[in-house]
Design a protein around this nucleic acid. Sequence first.
DNA 1: CCTTTTCTAAAACAATCGTTTCAGAAAAGC
DNA 2: GCTTTTCTGAAACGATTGTTTTAGAAAAGG
Lengths: 192, 192
Amino acid sequence: MARTVAFDLDEAIEKALDVFWEKGFHGTSMRDLTTAMQINSSSLYNSLGDKHQLFLECLRYYTRKRRTLLEQRANAFDSPREALESFINEVAEVVIKDANGCFAIKTAFEVSPNDRTIQTLLRDDNDFTHTFLSTLIQSAVKKGEMAASTNAGLVADYIISTYTGWYELYILHKDPLKIKKLAQFMIEQVLH
Amino acid sequence: MARTVAFDLDEAIEKALDVFWEKGFHGTSMRDLTTAMQINSSSLYNSLGDKHQLFLECLRYYTRKRRTLLEQRANAFDSPREALESFINEVAEVVIKDANGCFAIKTAFEVSPNDRTIQTLLRDDNDFTHTFLSTLIQSAVKKGEMAASTNAGLVADYIISTYTGWYELYILHKDPLKIKKLAQFMIEQVLH
DNA sequence: CCTTTTCTAAAACAATCGTTTCAGAAAAGC
DNA sequence: GCTTTTCTGAAACGATTGTTTTAGAAAAGG
């Protein structure tokens, strides 16, 4: 009945995400996007909407992918305490790898304060991570791997807010060892 | 000999800082700035330079002011441990007060990855805070207020990176109690 | 007061912004 | 293979971007 779209939507979103990730929302122009995505602006507006809608789509793509990874990780360990330790170490690895920091955190600071939709999306994503960590911590407590007095929700927030700072520290200092030491120190501090 | 500038430079910088703080570097236009500063763009370029130079001036103004506050605080306590505790609690208060988060942290994520000058400026500011906290921690150790085994530099980095995350958490959740609980938890965890 | 210098206001600058238009190409059902 | 529908490419849209120009106002020293 009608012509079909000539490009892969997910691939296009991935490429747009790369640009937004590097340059931020306001630092990215539609020309930057169409160049990276290798599609015409009319096709872009036709299939994905305007700049803001595209940004939202990228953010959803990013958070969705991260959730999948998170869930896969949770199932790879018998010991919840080991799962937590592995989670923290893996975050440290990602911090060192991502030259531009975490896209969600960058967006939280750049866009969230003036954009309710994005704030809500990121809050929900944050809540997901929070639930994920809380559950692990509760399991660890039940198994006697962590102190019975542990406040799971509080410790989950504590972990989340601590590694957010690692991104800033790494952007400013580019010192991988510093991040790894901080990860090790947090493990000693929190998981007892 | 010649005409004098008709506006107060520091006042103008403060107003520019407010705008940059709320909207970020790329989200702020020169019209936004001249409107808020209530000066003509020719006067602005004449006295402070272009957008990037003005931004740098705002960032220097912000970090300088914060350093002054930091040093005042250090001298207000006899006990270094109490000074640290007060520092952490005060950070929590500031996090809750600043609707847009810390200007330095916002800038670290938005601009630093693509701007060496600003990255260096923020790194130096970070180093200053790091030295400030390290010194306090070392004093606390000497006075027997903290464990002798304490690694002052590491704990300083740990404190800095933890409260960075509070800003993100507060932007997303707007929950003052959560921040205060995290501050209290950090005090219990770190200052023993 | 007059000269010198530097300021300010308004307008204009080219460039780029996000977005739309329009003519035509391409795919699928009949 | 024609029709219908939707896509694509190139060009263009007005608006806004950061910055500069120009004409004139204002301050200070001689």
